[in-house]
């Protein structure tokens, strides 16, 4: 009896160090979401406080019928898909190139990860003004120089931000997220046991065969992980939209988080914003269940 009591006590002592972090996390992360859930059932606009009332699921109907929110969902899907696709493709390419030994590889790696380290708002501003500015940006500047070198006599003036707002947001995001994808895929490449690859080479397998039948299957879960994690991070971020286009022109480049932000602090429709938030939570739970499984898998194979 004493031994079980002792081990119970020991167990409790071992659990103690966990509690501060656990309780803090539960309070600060779970309560806000419960409050959001609660508010989503109320009609509540702080400009009209007298009209506050319990509204069941009306907010969800309003959100579903809202044109701007529909545009936001469409844009979010397009932007996230595009950014994830291209940054994974470039990331894979760079990872394969950087996995080989060559002169100055360490330096090049540092240079390539730098875009990911630039503060997103700063990156967005650099692209908006210094690169994409129709008159003084370097894209049009260099394009004109090249064009005139080949006999052109006019000036290239493309206003990406008003003519192709989603592209003007996607390109800097791809630039910023490629190193993220590259780092995960590169880690995957370098976690391949070298002796097995050598053994395959000894057995006469060509490097293409080795790549297709060994490296790619091994890489698959790393690529999946970078896609899923990237999707979760990218779909939640609104720094670039906020800074580059403010969702415009019209609703052409608005995305879900930005639209919720507008509903909150421009329209003051707290109930609607909360309902949209609940929808986002549900979507995120679905997405992150994939991430969950992948992370668990990787951790188990590692043992």
């Amino acid at each position: 009896m004493t031994t079980t009591a002792d081990s119970k006590l020991a167990n409790r002592r071992r659990r103690l160090p966990l509690y501060p972090a656990l309780i803090f996390t539960i309070i600060l992360t779970q309560i806000p979401f419960l409050v959001t859930l609660g508010i989503s059932l109320f009609h509540w606009n702080i400009m009209y406080p007298d009209e506050t009332r319990f509204a069941w699921f009306e907010n969800f109907q309003t959100v579903a019928a809202d044109e701007a929110m529909r545009a936001a969902i469409k844009n979010s899907v397009m932007l996230t898909t595009g950014v994830v696709f291209f940054s994974t493709a470039f990331g894979l390419l760079l990872a394969l190139l950087l996995d080989r030994k060559f002169r100055g590889r360490a330096l090049l790696r540092i240079l390539v990860i730098t875009p990911f380290l630039i503060t997103p708002v700063a990156a967005a501003l650099i692209w908006k003004h210094i690169i994409f500015n129709p008159m003084y940006g370097i894209v049009n500047g260099f394009a004109t120089q090249i064009y005139q070198k080949f006999g052109g006599d006019s000036v290239v003036v493309i206003d990406f931000i008003s003519q192709r707002p989603l592209v003007a947001i996607a390109v800097p995001m791809i630039w910023q997220w490629t190193p993220f994808m590259m780092l995960i895929i590169l880690a995957g490449l370098q976690s391949q046991p070298p002796d097995i690859l050598e053994a395959a080479a000894v057995d006469g397998a060509s490097s293409r065969q080795i790549f297709r039948s060994m490296t790619l299957p091994h890489l698959r879960q790393y690529i999946q992980l970078s896609i899923v994690l990237g999707t979760i991070y990218i779909i939640q971020s609104m720094d670039f939209v906020f800074t580059i286009t403010q969702g415009g022109p019209g609703s052409d480049s608005t995305i879900i988080p930005y639209q919720i932000y507008l509903t909150l602090f421009r329209k003051y429709e707290f109930g609607e914003a909360a309902a949209a938030g609940v929808i986002v939570i549900i979507l995120t739970i679905i997405l992150s269940s994939f991430a969950f499984r992948l992370i668990r898998n990787l951790l188990e194979t590692e043992k």
Binding site: L18, T29, T36, I39, I232, Q236, I260, Y261, G277, T284
Partner: peptide
């Protein structure tokens, strides 16, 4: 417990903005 911690990392901050 670890799964719980992980799951909170995936929660969208925009949905917590209003309560905060």
């Amino acid at each position: 417990v670890l799964s719980f911690f992980l799951s909170t990392k995936f929660l969208p901050p925009i949905a917590a903005l209003l309560p905060i």
